[in-house]
Amino acid sequence: MKTFLFIVIVLFSGAFAGLIHGTVNFAIVEPYLDQAIGIENQNLFESGEEKDSTKFWVEYEGYRVWQKSGQILAGVILGTSMGALFGIVFALSRNSLPGNNDIKKALVLAGIMWFTIYLIPFLKYPANPPTVGDAETVVLRVILYLSFIAISGIGAIIFYKLSHKFQNKKKFVSLIGYGIFISVVFFIMPENPDEITAPMNLVNEFRIMSVLGVSSFWISIGIILGFLWNRFESNKDTIKYS
């Protein structure tokens, strides 16, 4: 596939999948964000940091509209970014992915990436709504979260590469090896230092919606990129034999 076309379809796939992610979040995550921000505001009033005044609410409405409208735009930006990573990995691994067409191959890869660089890190450092999280620890939490994503992703690649040495038990060895490795890392990595101060049912429901939103992205990117790859790939040789 030509370089320009490859870049275009990868970025388009990511942006479109991100648009879906943002739209899904807008529908199912926003109500929980509103609820959590409501609690956050109440805490500000009770602690005396803010006054329950018209000025506060005018200011609040101003930036809240900006935040809500940003959900979809941020979805497109994040989707384009993650789509770029997905495109690189798909292009490099496509020939060894299972499946008899590009949509199946892309969906398999999307599932692997969803599991290794999203779900596993999420189980260790789950998403939290506003009102949970101390601003003083945000840098530490970012470092922990990114480190775990990187360790999980790189670990998956290393065990995949190692699996080539065990042709007959390829899947078994790589899966078990990665499983043991990531379990050890899971228990070694420090916990999120922040206490959860919001109601647990709100936090849990928010997390479920968050997982559904992110999952919608990975399913979408697999289908869209797989379809476009199939449609535009011209580098195929047809061989006739008798």
């Binding site: 490859f6 870049i7 970025l11 770029a84 580098n235 061989i239």
Partner: peptide, 27 residues
């Protein structure tokens, strides 16, 4: 006569560089 389709994948370094920059910047 039977026919098979052989698909070859070549990824240019330029494409990987561009996409890696988009990935890092967007993230």
């Amino acid at each position: 006569f039977r026919q098979i389709t052989v698909s070859k994948t070549g990824v240019s370094k330029l494409a990987i560089l561009v996409l890696a920059i988009v990935f890092a910047a967007g993230l």
